[in-house]
Structure formats: structure tokens, C-alpha cells
Design a protein around this nucleic acid. Structure first.
Ligand SMILES: Nc1ccn([C@H]2C[C@H](O)[C@@H](COP(=O)(O)OP(=O)(O)OP(=O)(O)O)O2)c(=O)n1
Ligand SMILES: [Mg+2]
Ligand SMILES: [Mg+2]
Length: 819
DNA sequence: ATCCTCCCCTAC
DNA sequence: TAAGGTAGGGGAGGAT
């Protein structure tokens, strides 16, 4: 350790010496080059400076447009990616290193940090048309090189789409680029020193991340608070009589929220900082460049323009004497606990909002001002921190009252004063009105609460959607019909990490997926729940984004993708979840080096009493005799930790005997139908995007989350069991989508999601619209082609609703079709 | 109509 | 340098 420090110090000294003292020039590689180094780089700015001086170049400490010829950076501020002047030559420092190694100045093209791919096309009319993208997939592939040619730095993702057109074309378009070289040089620069902080760093990344993530902390605290309330209130209901409330009293709601929560805790234990501009963040010595998030700013800091969520650098620029204090999660948890104890002491109707905040129904419990005063005193007593309380006739006004009361205050906001106070607020301050909503409203010329109130409800709904529009219509009038209630059972259990996520190979990425699946499984077990749907979310570096984000080890600009699948039986088992998640992950077909975030969630949850039983009770089916004889043995992966004994693997749809189904009790039949419908939907979906589960995958999935919807399946999948056992794996597409030669090329017309992702959103929309128009669902093709091989299999509806479809047929088929 | 998947948005 | 999570409401668009 000590040795390491000495070594670093020595290195620093050497650099300084090189910097201060004269540096001998040993070559003229960089004749005429003047660099300016932006942000953190590897090698360091000082090292780069020395390189320049040694090799005939010049180094500027400031960005003088007149003299600087190259800006050197490993990351770009997001703003620059979006708005950066096309004239800027921003180059990765590797250019300098490689040039020196090569003994000559290499062309910068492949080291450019970003590609202003479509700038030059801004004026063109039908973009899709001009690119020849409009028709079939084959043609869209053919134009890819053309697309590339317009790309300043040639993006690997676009090129990937071009792959099918032949690498030679790419080479011709870019004689100085070597196929995927750009992609690689983009995604590789993480150096060993940094790597240890990422998913590449070793076993405890996830654990370490969670223990340092404030967002993880406040999210999980919220669930913990709810759990605490559930228990405390339930206990209270069962052991004592309900709180005595004055009959007929008008409803009074409290909204209680700690003042600058994290900072309050910090100041409580650091009284000397009471009046200093304090923020809570990781970057204790963050410079004006720092992109560390500020979780919480003290009121002294807020008075100087600092707010929660701001980047450290931005704050430091405003307030150079900012005092940064570290996170103290244990303390926050303790204070939160004390706070919630006060809550349940004052009311038996409490709704948790967050670690530092809740609603209380105080109807008929006394004078609001007195209650609030007492409650605030208790909170302060027990926690050493101050809270503010807003009160009102409904939750909305209580909440708005809180913001008026802060800090360390109380305020009752009646209907009478509601619109007056509301009109004094910027739209953004209204609950439910976030960044996007403000923008949509502004675009429609609505910029204030008063203007909002002047709009017909229908207009707001047209602008914002039926629900949000109607909600806002009420909000600006101070109306809210919500009641203080604990939320019902959880609807999802998920985890996601989008910081420090870097992989060099598929194995590492898959291992990480496994790890997160384990995490979700653990939480599910803890919650005594199993999930029937697993969703995988992937963030992939945006094709235009540089390898490294502006925020240190952040995800940067990304496209997101989500894919879900059914777990049968519903599960919380780490292995089962991991298998499902990995299948989905592989189905996306992403280059591991481009992945910047991974998330896994379980939904369609149900509770398990003993943690031993799946949601679908085997007994319900078993009792129906005949089916069980035909079942496949339980699949190993589906069973989960609960042991094979209690679980059931459903037979393939095609194996069902309609007549047997018909004899099942209505409820069981409904349950089965839901399961099979779901499977069917998944097959279609997967087939549509050309996802292949286990085999080689010549084609690729669909659009990114941020893109417009893409078309669905070109195929109608028929579950007729023609291929026997491999359709046991309901996650995989049916056999006829695969490797079959029925469509010449052997690939279906799924469009590469990365390709679509590479397009600007407007162009992408056009492309997708055109794809839709010109290659209408070819459902007819497959329909006509391969289905019904053996005299026609019954449809799902026919199976489950024989009366509707063809009642007679069910009776005629007295056996399972295969298996 | 209603369900489903994938996505967006919001809040702390 | 830095720890950009998590859950719920809701909508679009396709399938049934
Ligand atoms: N972008 C954000 C917002 C909040 N928090 C954390 C830190 C806050 O202290 C805590 C509570 O959030 P609040 O919205 O209640 O804000 P504060 O309590 O900090 O201030 P206020 O007095 O406005 O409630 O959540 C965070 O980490 N990042
Ligand atoms: Mg607060
Ligand atoms: Mg709060």
C-alpha cells in the first residue's frame, strides 16, 4: 500500500518535472499539432503534454480556438454530443499513443470520439427514401454502406447492419478502417486502473455498488418503511381498538417530510457546519469537472442555487466553498425508523412515500396545528433532525402545503387558498408534473398553473394522455380524491445496475446477468413471492456515444431494450431466473462490450406461504386425472428451489387433448388457458423479431426502447407439435422459424435493433413506417406454408372454447397429438 | 372490450 | 474521477 503510494507520488513528480523543466524533443511526429486536453484522460493530461513536447507538438492549457488543432478527451459531456460544433476535432488520446508507437502521425479518423452521422442530412426530405431504406430488409441492408459513408467516424453498429452486405463494401467505403476496428477501439479503452471499479473488477462489484448507491438505498428503504407500517399497523389493529376520531370531522391529511434529509443528518452531527453550504455526495473533493451526483443540499447551499440531483461540478462552479460530506446510510436508516415510529404513534392510517416522508390521515384527531407541532417536536427529539408538515383537506393540498412550510415549519392549505398558492408555483412543482410534462405543455403554449387551469380537460388529455391530463386538470384546481392507504401487495421485484457496467466478453456479461438474477431471486424469497414473468432490461451504448460516458463509469447515452418471458412454474429460484434471463439476453444478440446496464425484474407475482409451492397448484390439475399421464417429466430448470415434488411442467399445447381439457373445471380451464395464451404470444413475438434461442443466430432482434414501435411477427406460429420435443422449451421459437430453407436466404426479416437504434429518431420512425407499409405482416405466407401439417391442429381458442369454435371437433380428437 | 408486451414518465 | 435504483401508473399497438 505504502509502496504503491510512493510509486504514484514518484510518477507524479516525474510528470511535473517533465512539465516544468525542458522536455527534449525527439521527433516531429506531431508537427503542427496543438492539443487541448478535456477532462480526465488516460494517459493523464500531463503525460500527454510531455508526449507532445517530445514529439514536436504543442500543448495548450486552454481551449484557444485559433491555435488548438485537436481536442483530446476520453469522454464527452452529453451536451457536446448533442450540440457540439461539427468543426471540433475531438480525439481519443490513444491516437497520440498509437502515433508515437507507429513513429508517424496516424490519421485521426478512427480515433474521433463521435460521429455527427446525420448532421449533413438534416435538410433532406424523405430520409428513409433517400437512403433507400423503405422496402424490404434485404434492401435496407444493401444501403448500409451508403449510410456508413455519411458517418464521420463510421460507427460499428451501423456497420454491423452492413455486415450482410459484405465487409468488402465497408472496406471500400472506408479504406482506412478495418471492419469492426472502430467499434473495438470505441469500447476497449477502459484501463486496468479503472476496470477494478467496474463489473470487470471482481466478485464484490454488485455488493459494493449497492452499499454505495443512494438511489438503491432510498428505494429499498421505501419498501422497508412500507413493511414496517404493514406490520405496525396490523399489530395495532389486532391488539387495540381503532383510534378514536371525532365523528363527522372534516378530512385532514398530513404530509410529513424531513428537511433536506441527508444533509440534516450530517449537520446534526457536525454543528459547526450549520450555516455552511453543505452537500452530500461521493466526491468529497470534487472539482468543477466532477459528475458526481449531489444527493442532498442543505438549505444554506440551496440559498446559493444548489439542489438535489445536481452534479458536483455544476455546484462547485456556483459555490466554490461548497462543503461536501459523505453518505451515512446507517444514520439515515435510524432516523427514518424513528420518524416512522412517530407516524404510527399519531395515526393508524399512514402511507409511506419514502425514507423521509409519509402521508397521515389525521381526520378527527385534533387541531392540526397542535398535532403538527407535537409531531414535529417528537421527530426532532427522537432524531435530532427537523421535519416540516403540510396539512390540508386532501393529499394534494397537504403535499403542496409541505413545500410552503419548508424548512422546519407547518402550513395548512385549505381549498380556499389553494388556487392562489398553486398559481404561485411553477408547473414543475406540481406533483406528477415532471420534466417531460412541462415540455409538452410548453410546446403547447402552456407555461403556468393558471394557464393550465384555463384549458379544457380534453385539451390537457390530448396533450398528455387521458389519465395524466385528467389528473393535471384536477391538480391545478387543488382537487384530489386519493385516500391514505398502504399500497397492496407488490407487483414487481426488480434490480438494475447501470453504473460501472463494462464487459470485455460474453462470459463476463452472462455471469453478471446470472448474478442479478440471483439478487432478484433472493429478494423474491425474502418477500415470499414467486413471479410468473421475468423481464430483462439492457442498456446498450448508443451508437453515436463515445465509449466512455461523461459521467465517470456511467452509462452515457444509451438505447434500452426489454424482453420478457414466462416462468413456468412461477419461480423465485436463482437458477431458474438465471436461465430465463440468459436466454433473453442471448436472444438480444448484443456485443457484450456495448452493454452499459442490466436489469432483471419479476412480475405477475404471487405469494407463497411456505416458500415451497408454486402459484399454479399441481393438485388442481392432478386431480383431473388423464392429463398427468401424458406429462413430460418436470423440467429441471423450471422447478426452482422448491424441489420437484410440488411442481408441474405443463405439456406442450399441441399435446393437450381437447376432450380432456373440456372436462376440466371451469376455473382450472381458465387458468390453463391464460398460461397457453401467454406462451403463444411469446412465440409469436420471438419469431417476429427473428430471435433464436439456442442455436446460431444469423439475425437480430428489434428496436430499442427509445425507438418507435416496430412491426411484429412476419409469421403466425402454429403450435402443432410437428417437431416433437424441442417445443417443450416454450421460450424458444417453434422449429419452423429456424434454419429452414423456406425463405431462400435462411434469415427472416427481423431488423437489427442496433441498426434501428443507430438512426435518429425521426428517420427511424420513417423507416419503421415504411417497413410496415411495404412488408405487411407476411402472416399469410407461413400460414399457408407450414402449418397444419398433420391434418390441422386445433387453435388455442378452439381448445379452450370449443363451443365458440368447433364444438364437435374436440370430441373427435381423443388423444394427445404427440409426445 | 380486454389482454399482452414494451415502453415512457414520475417520484424519492 | 464514482457508486445513474426501483416501483407503479399509464399508453400504444397488436392479438384475441
Ligand atoms: N435526486 C435525489 C433526490 C433525493 N435524494 C435523497 C436525498 C434526500 O435528502 C432524500 C429525501 O428527498 P427529498 O425530496 O425529501 O428532499 P430533501 O429531504 O433533501 O429536501 P426537502 O427539505 O426539500 O424535503 O432523498 C437523492 O438522493 N437524490
Ligand atoms: Mg425531505
Ligand atoms: Mg421526501
Amino acid at each position: 500500500m505504502e509502496r504503491k503510494r510512493r510509486k504514484l507520488a514518484a510518477q507524479y513528480d516525474a510528470e511535473r518535472a517533465a512539465n516544468g523543466g525542458g522536455v527534449a524533443q525527439v521527433s516531429s511526429i506531431f508537427d503542427g499539432v496543438t492539443i487541448y486536453v478535456n477532462g480526465y484522460t488516460t494517459p493523464s493530461a500531463m503525460t500527454l503534454r510531455r508526449y507532445m513536447l517530445q514529439h514536436g507538438g504543442r500543448y495548450e492549457f486552454q481551449l484557444h480556438r485559433s491555435s488548438v488543432t485537436h481536442i483530446i478527451a476520453t469522454t464527452l459531456p452529453d451536451a457536446k454530443i448533442k450540440f457540439g460544433p461539427a468543426s471540433d476535432v475531438i480525439v481519443h488520446p490513444q491516437w497520440i499513443v498509437d502515433s508515437i508507437a507507429a513513429g508517424k502521425q496516424l490519421a485521426v479518423e478512427r480515433y474521433l470520439l463521435f460521429a455527427n452521422a446525420y448532421k449533413s442530412m438534416a435538410g433532406q426530405q424523405s430520409l428513409a427514401e433517400s437512403l433507400g431504406l423503405a422496402t424490404a430488409a434485404g434492401e435496407s441492408l444493401a444501403i448500409a454502406p451508403e449510410l456508413d459513408r455519411r458517418t464521420t467516424a463510421g460507427d460499428a453498429l451501423t456497420r454491423r447492419a452492413a455486415g450482410a452486405a459484405g465487409a468488402a463494401d465497408v472496406e471500400q467505403a472506408h479504406p482506412d478502417l478495418d471492419g469492426l476496428g472502430m467499434r473495438r477501439s470505441k469500447d476497449e479503452p477502459i484501463d486496468p486502473g479503472l476496470a477494478r471499479l467496474t463489473t470487470l473488477g471482481g466478485g464484490d462489484f454488485v455488493q459494493k455498488f449497492y452499499s454505495n448507491s443512494r438511489l438503491h438505498f432510498i428505494s429499498t428503504s421505501r419498501m422497508a418503511s412500507q413493511e414496517f407500517l404493514r406490520k405496525a399497523l396490523a399489530e395495532r389493529y389486532s391488539t387495540s381498538q381503532p383510534l378514536a376520531r371525532e365523528a363527522g370531522a372534516r378530512q385532514v391529511i398530513f404530509h410529513v417530510d424531513m428537511d433536506c434529509f441527508f444533509a440534516s443528518v450530517a449537520l446534526r452531527d457536525r454543528p459547526h457546519l450549520a450555516n455552511a453550504p453543505v452537500v452530500v455526495a461521493h466526491a468529497l473533493n470534487g472539482s468543477v469537472e466532477s459528475k458526481s451526483d449531489i444527493a442532498c443540499a442543505s438549505y444554506a447551499a440551496r440559498a446559493r442555487g444548489i439542489s438535489n440531483g445536481m452534479f458536483m461540478g455544476a455546484a462547485r462552479r456556483k459555490v466554490p466553498d461548497l462543503v461536501v460530506v459523505p453518505y451515512e446510510f446507517d444514520k439515515y436508516a435510524a432516523v427514518s425508523k424513528a420518524l416512522y415510529r412517530v407516524f404510527v404513534a399519531f395515526s393508524d392510517k399512514v402511507q409511506a412515500v419514502s425514507v423521509d416522508e409519509a402521508y397521515l390521515d389525521m381526520t378527527g384527531l385534533g387541531q392540526p396545528a397542535e398535532l403538527a407541532s407535537e409531531m414535529r417536536a417528537q421527530i426532532h427529539e427522537l432524531s435530532g433532525c427537523t421535519a416540516s408538515i403540510g396539512a390540508g383537506p386532501n393529499m394534494l393540498l397537504a403535499r403542496i402545503a409541505t413545500s410552503l412550510a419548508k424548512p422546519d415549519g407547518f402550513r395548512f392549505l385549505s381549498h380556499e387558498h389553494a388556487t392562489f398558492e398553486i398559481d404561485a408555483l411553477p408547473l414543475r412543482k406540481l406533483p406528477g408534473v415532471g420534466y417531460k410534462t412541462v415540455r409538452k405543455l410548453a410546446k403547447a403554449g402552456i407555461t403556468s398553473c393558471a394557464e393550465c387551469r384555463a384549458q379544457p380537460r380534453a385539451r390537457l388529455q390530448a396533450l398528455l394522455g387521458g389519465s395524466v391530463g385528467a389528473k393535471l386538470y384536477d391538480t391545478v384546481r387543488g382537487l384530489d380524491s386519493g385516500t391514505v392507504t398502504l399500497p397492496g401487495p407488490r407487483k414487481s421485484i426488480g434490480t438494475e445496475i447501470s453504473w460501472g457496467v463494462r464487459f470485455t466478453d460474453a462470459t463476463g456479461a452472462e455471469q453478471f446477468v446470472r448474478e442479478l438474477a440471483g439478487e432478484v431471486g433472493r429478494r423474491a424469497v425474502e418477500a415470499a413471492m414467486v413471479g410468473a414473468t421475468l423481464t430483462l432490461k439492457i442498456k446498450q451504448r448508443h451508437p453515436d456515444a463515445p465509449a466512455e460516458a461523461s459521467k465517470f463509469l456511467g452509462h452515457g447515452k444509451v438505447n434500452s431494450f426489454s424482453r420478457s418471458t414466462t416462468l413456468a412454474p412461477p419461480s423465485s429460484d436463482a437458477v431458474a431466473l438465471a436461465d430465463a434471463a440468459l436466454t433473453l439476453y442471448r436472444g438480444l444478440g448484443f456485443e457484450a462490450t456495448t452493454v452499459r446496464g442490466v436489469g432483471i425484474a419479476l412480475t405477475r407475482l404471487s405469494e407463497v406461504e411456505s416458500e415451497r409451492r408454486p402459484a399454479l397448484q399441481p393438485a388442481a390439475i392432478d386431480s383431473q386425472t388423464t392429463l398427468s399421464a401424458e406429462w413430460h417429466p418436470p423440467a429441471v430448470t423450471g422447478v426452482g428451489g422448491r424441489g420437484a415434488e410440488g411442481t408441474v411442467e405443463l405439456p406442450t399445447f399441441s399435446q393437450l387433448d381437447p376432450s380432456v381439457i373440456a372436462e376440466l373445471p371451469a376455473e382450472t380451464r381458465r387458468e390453463l388457458e391464460i398460461v397457453y395464451r401467454r406462451r403463444l404470444a411469446e412465440r409469436k413475438r420471438d419469431a417476429g423479431r427473428g430471435t433464436l434461442t439456442q442455436m446460431a443466430r444469423p439475425t437480430l432482434p428489434s428496436r430499442p426502447a427509445s425507438a418507435a414501435k416496430t412491426k411484429p411477427a412476419p409469421m403466425v406460429i402454429v403450435l402443432d407439435g410437428a417437431s416433437g420435443s424441442d417445443d417443450d422449451d416454450f421460450v424458444s421459437p417453434p422449429p419452423q422459424t429456424r434454419g429452414s430453407s423456406d425463405e431462400g436466404s435462411g434469415r427472416d426479416d427481423g431488423v437489427d435493433p442496433e441498426f434501428l437504434a443507430a438512426l435518429p429518431s425521426q428517420l427511424r420512425r420513417e423507416v419503421e413506417a415504411d417497413l410496415k407499409r411495404t412488408s405487411p405482416r407476411k402472416s399469410g405466407r407461413c400460414d399457408g406454408g407450414r402449418k397444419r401439417q398433420r391434418g390441422g391442429a386445433p387453435s388455442l381458442s378452439q381448445i379452450f372454447h370449443p363451443s365458440q369454435a368447433e364444438g364437435g371437433r374436440a370430441a373427435r380428437r381423443r388423444h394427445l397429438l404427440s409426445g
